[in-house]
Simulated assay, not measured.
Amino acid sequence: MSDVSTKAPVIRLRGVSRTFTGPVDVTALHPTDLEVAQGEFLAVIGPSGSGKSTLLNLLGLLDRPSGGTYELGGVDVASLKDRERTAFRGHGIGFVFQSFHLLPYRTATENVVLAQLYVTRSRARRTEEAVAALRQVGLGHRLDALPPTMSGGERQRVAIARALVNRPELLLCDEPTGNLDSDNSELILRLFEQLHAAGQTIVVITHDHEVARRAGRSVTIRDGVLRDTVEAIGGT
């Protein structure tokens, strides 16, 4: 496992909360403190309705907190304007979702190229970077394949390559094995372990205890309250 003890945290939440206002206000996330170190592999585990999606949207800059401060890579992202948040998200965060969100009529390479919209590179360089990312996840032999011709595990690896191609500081994953069988789930978890060993910071939101077991650390969320749990057994 990478030595993360002396490095500044990638994520630092201080009293971050989210309340949805209405006839009756609903607090989806109670004031939360959380730090995720550089190179750490963290799992956030909880049942449906626990606040996982709210936390994911806040960490991914898809929503703003109602209170508290969120620093990502040392930047107070809660105060950024919308355009700044969009650019910061495009460069700093790679997303992996349960549904792969690949364009079916684009090749694996083309799907990864499209993730580089916010990066000023030539078309040839974007293609080179996409090919390198696909090779990194073991898909060098499927560069021209269309998603409908690929297995679920291959499609998820394309999605991971797309998330990695801009070299984000944070890889944020939402139920990444939720649509996969046990064999393909194992392949994806091994890939996460390899990325973690290479120094990638990974946060996985999941309800799956096996996914959480493979992470270096896990926390639980229930009724909008985040709590530390013991170190997960296993991982790299």
Rank of each mutant, 00 (worst) to 15 (best):
P168Q: 06
G152E: 06
I202H: 06
R83Y: 14
T19Q: 03
L189D: 04
T206E: 08
F192W: 06
T86Q: 15
G92I: 03
V24I: 12
N184L: 07
A8R: 05
A161G: 04
R126G: 02
I221R: 01
E186A: 13
H30E: 08
L195N: 11
A108T: 01
D25R: 09
E84I: 05
V16P: 03
G216I: 03
I202F: 10
K81Q: 15
H141W: 07
L117F: 14
R123F: 14
A197Q: 13
R85G: 13
G199Q: 09
L170C: 05
V4A: 14
F100I: 08
I160L: 13
F88D: 10
T201L: 04
I188P: 03
L61A: 08
H209C: 09
T236P: 15
A43Q: 02
S5F: 04
A163I: 02
S122W: 10
R121M: 13
E169Q: 13
K7T: 06
T236I: 13
N166H: 13
T120Q: 15
A78P: 09
F20V: 08
G15F: 05
D181M: 13
L170N: 02
D181T: 08
S2Q: 11
Q200I: 08
H30K: 05
R125I: 06
E186C: 10
T149A: 14
F100P: 07
G49R: 08
V219E: 00
V112F: 10
G92P: 09
A108K: 01
L117Q: 15
